[in-house]
Design a binder for these strands. Structure first.
Lengths: 223, 223
DNA sequence: AAATACTTAGGTATAAATACGCATTAATTA
DNA sequence: TAATTAATGCGTATTTATACCTAAGTATTT
């Protein structure tokens, strides 16, 4: 059996050490040939141009380049690399974005040896692996069998409540503590336009007010 | 030389593994007798009632009970335990709160073996250890020698623009997307009282509006 | 005992946000 | 090309938030 090459991408050394230690002490250890590290998305992309990795564990929230963008770019160059997302949070938006970007797995950082091994085995054999909490989150709203469900979600994904460019831009300015009037001035638009956008964003995200908007802005990492 | 007993407190298993691995592979390894783990502040407090630990590595942001509260409570029962704060972020507020709570060290999670060893040695010998970035943050605004500086900060701490209990409570409810009226109902107070508090908080924090409030709430980790 | 800070609450006013509906134009996609 | 979505803008109304002020009762600290 061919041994696998792994890349760990996370801006926190202790977390990288944690994964490394967990991998080296797990059931999959004999099948691993090397474990490389990168501190952010940019470095990960660079390393992928030099080496070929079988599995990449990718953190989502990182400075320089986040895991979602890095995943997209890496898979553009090499579709055979398997990318497993790693996150602190089981946030709907992050999960779906990573899946959309091409990740074949999603684990939370409170994962132990057994789950990590299971995920590696599954993915090496061409499967997909979502940790339990993540899967539950993903499959909550829809009926059908589990496999169908994931398919449904992928298809529905585009119609989902993801903001448009303009909306994102306005959300950023809201987060910068500007009023609608100030935003309008900034973008050379009517205040009423910003009113509408703001309302649409609130509806799309199903939040109640500005507080909800800012929390979402944090969630998707634009703050 | 007496071997030391260590407790790791963090809600993420990978992070606990990371610290453990880093400790076990470091220079301090021969001096460590055991490494115990807890997943949140509550469990840490409980474990401290059963065992005596020489050093506790304490995460700050955790569910159930955060690191600041846990630190206070643990030190109330045993002042000889040395607590080292561990955080993702070098946020002023967190650092100062942990120092105030009695932590003798503050490390960021991107710490490697060398720093970790250095910190342990320093603290075992009765010293205090702040990782470089943290120390810089702490000492930025004030003149004087480093030791004096820390003293100054401790004394100034109370006069600082930190929110009162009530204000924090209201900020949390604002972050939960409640309106002032709903908050008033929740706390059995007049809406006008909440209006006043909200205004005071905005003034204290020098932010412009709700967006600023929520960003601050994130910064201090109450979201 | 006096000073200080916290909590409470009201007066008054304006600014801003929220809610729903409608409509046009540009851009994208089927 | 037809259909859909994104971006723009306005009408109207209500609710919330922001701003600045005063002030009294409560704790806490000096």
């Amino acid at each position: 059996m061919k041994k696998i090459k792994i890349l760990l991408v996370d801006d926190h050394k202790l977390v990288r050490n944690g994964i490394k230690y967990t991998l080296e002490s797990g059931r999959s250890a004999p099948f691993i040939s090397s474990i490389d590290e990168a501190v952010n998305g940019d470095e990960a992309i660079l390393k992928c141009k030099i080496n070929r990795y079988d599995i990449i564990f990718m953190d989502i929230n990182m400075p320089e380049k986040d895991g979602i963008a890095a995943t997209k770019e890496i898979l553009k160059n090499d579709q055979f690399t398997k990318i497993i997302a790693l996150s602190m949070y089981d946030e709907d938006y992050e999960i779906r974005s990573m899946i959309k970007a091409g990740a074949v797995g999603y684990l939370l950082k409170n994962t132990g040896t057994e789950i990590l091994d299971e995920a590696i085995q599954t993915i090496i054999n061409g499967g997909k692996y979502y940790s339990n909490d993540v899967a539950i989150k993903l499959l909550e709203p829809n009926p059908g069998t589990s496999r169908e469900k994931i398919k449904i979600i992928r298809e529905t994904n585009q119609n989902e409540s993801v903001l448009t460019k303009r909306e994102l831009q306005i959300l950023e300015l809201i987060a910068a503590e500007l009023t609608n009037e100030e935003i309008a001035a900034e973008l050379n638009l009517s205040k009423r336009t910003i009113d509408s956008h703001r309302q649409n964003i609130i509806n799309k995200l199903q939040v109640k007010n500005t507080a909800g908007l800012i929390k979402y802005a944090f969630k998707i990492g634009i703050i």
